[in-house]
Design a protein around this nucleic acid. Structure first.
Length: 428
RNA sequence: GGAGGGAUGGCCGAGUGGACGAUGGCGACGGUCUUGAAAACCGUUGUGGCCGCAAGGUCACCGAGGGUUCGAAUCCCUCUCCCUCCGCCA
């Protein structure tokens, strides 16, 4: 959510931000109009309520029956009028809320302006594709050949875009999760969280998934529970409606969860392999910070994600999202892409974002800058650290050998139970 | 799943229609006293909206949302959460 005060005072700034996002700036005008209406109605209602409050107190003390009845009759009329105005006020407020909740975060001034993903500048590159003296196989062939990946049976159980990991494949994923959690908790200072994988609707609003991405989220209608599309959702809501102590900031969390997405908006895209499934695993980093520190913390989080990539020794590049490609709730985002030799693609394995106060306002997460000071909103940041299926793809495709086997990267060996090479046998 | 009991300020806890934004206690903060500290005493101690340059005024909030009433923490309805007992169960 954007500060209504900012919209009132500097509507042109907000409009410029929306234009850069390819969004419609006219929405700002309708918000301003509703805001004026709201305040007018509010003032009318409050004057009447103040009157009724004081007269009602008098009535309680009055002995004179006649006067009493006269005042009660008067106040009944005042009450009716209040009721009418309150109905109007509620309508205006709910329209205003809906407009406010539909507004994306404003891009940070440092974000490059551009229309779409083709304008995302590459900021950094690291590593060289390792020289292969054979034609590399994409993971959708390599996995089934090694019997560690099974698409047919995944589809049999759950439909398209589901798959099964088997034997060393399943173990490789589990090793990646355990290893990444260990690095982030032991070396990068994050606290591990194991959250629920289903949450209430209000959590989806708080994290900014609703209203925009309703189509993309699985939901249990009977109990009104929503399957998390990312651990960012429960992590954002951990401190919903809280006022945090200044000393406990920044808070750094890391959580492993499965993630569930309908992928309706991406129907037909990336249908091959495990790049984009309805269910995938992810290790997610999350920070709540003081506003002044958030951009330093963003750089730190990017480094934490890059550290994982470098230790896997897979070529990568960092892009910054331009204004036109920025996510709904983010003010600034870096994407990390890993090279996948088999499918010959750069894969987005991490997206690191500063949401500033966007989620904090929605979820009402504040801190007290000094003892006795008024609470103000924290900044929230999130970043994949990393998204599993894509790291799996990169590992399988970059570490494959001419004989069709896959060498387990050194850093993962302690978690692989002695498996150094994934071959046909390791699948069992 | 069945039966019952709850939810009040940072915490404990009183309050069943009118002077209650809420008695009291604890904690925290400030002060008096003291060489210093403790004790004792005095005072302060929630969040948000709106109007205002400000001082200040006003409205809302007693788990959430509706309703009754001139007036609701208090009465009615719905929901959520917690506790106890029984059943079931990884």
């Amino acid at each position: 959510m954007i500060d209504i005060g900012l919209i009132r005072e500097q509507p042109e700034v907000v409009k410029a931000g929306l234009v850069n996002r390819n969004d419609d700036p006219v929405r700002v005008d309708s918000i301003l109009e509703l805001d004026v209406q709201r305040r007018e109605l509010l003032q009318q209602v409050e004057v009447l309520r103040a009157d009724r409050n004081s007269v009602s107190k008098q009535i309680g003390r009055l002995k004179d029956q006649k006067k009493r009845e006269r005042l009660i009759a008067e106040m009944r009329q005042v009450g009716d009028r209040i009721g009418e105005l309150e109905i109007q006020l509620r309508q205006v407020e709910s329209s205003l809320d809906a407009e406010m909740l539909a507004l994306p975060a404003l891009p940070h001034l440092s974000v490059p302006i551009g229309p779409d993903e083709t304008h995302n500048p590459v900021l950094r590159e690291w590593g060289e594709p390792r020289p292969l003296d054979f034609e590399p196989t994409p993971h959708w062939d390599l996995g089934p050949e090694l019997s560690i990946l099974d698409f047919e049976r995944g589809t049999k159980l759950s439909g398209s875009r589901f798959y099964i990991l088997r034997g060393a494949g399943a173990r490789l994923q589990r090793a990646l999760i355990a290893w990444m959690l260990d690095v982030h908790t032991r070396e990068h200072g994050y606290t591990e969280i194991y959250p629920p994988f289903v949450v209430r609707e209000e959590c989806m609003w708080g994290a900014g998934e609703l209203p925009k991405f309703a189509d993309n989220i699985y939901r249990d209608v009977e109990d009104d529970l929503w399957l998390v599309p990312t651990a960012e959702v429960p992590l954002t809501n951990l401190h919903r409606d809280e006022i945090l102590d200044d000393e406990c900031l920044p808070i750094k969390y890391v959580a492993y969860t499965a993630c569930f997405r309908r992928e309706k908006m991406s129907a037909g895209r990336d249908v091959r392999g495990i790049k984009r499934g309805h269910q995938f695993d992810k290790v997610e980093m999350y920070k709540l910070t003081r506003p002044k520190a958030s951009y330093d913390e963003l750089e730190g989080m990017l480094e934490d994600a890059l550290d994982i990539c470098r230790r896997l020794d897979i070529p990568l590049r960092v892009k910054e999202l331009c204004t036109g490609d920025l996510g709904f709730h983010s003010a600034k985002t870096y994407d990390i892409e890993m090279w996948a030799a088999g499918c010959g693609e750069w894969l987005e394995v991490s997206s690191v974002s500063n949401c500033e106060t966007f989620q904090a306002r929605r979820a009402n997460i504040r801190y007290r800058p000094e003892p006795g000071a008024k609470p103000s909103f924290v900044h929230t940041l999130n970043g994949s650290g990393l998204a599993l299926p894509r790291v799996m793809i990169a590992v399988l495709e970059n570490y494959q050998r001419a004989d069709g086997c896959v060498v387990v990267p050194d850093v993962l060996r302690p978690w692989m139970g002695g498996i150094e090479v994934i071959d046909g046998r390791a699948a069992r």
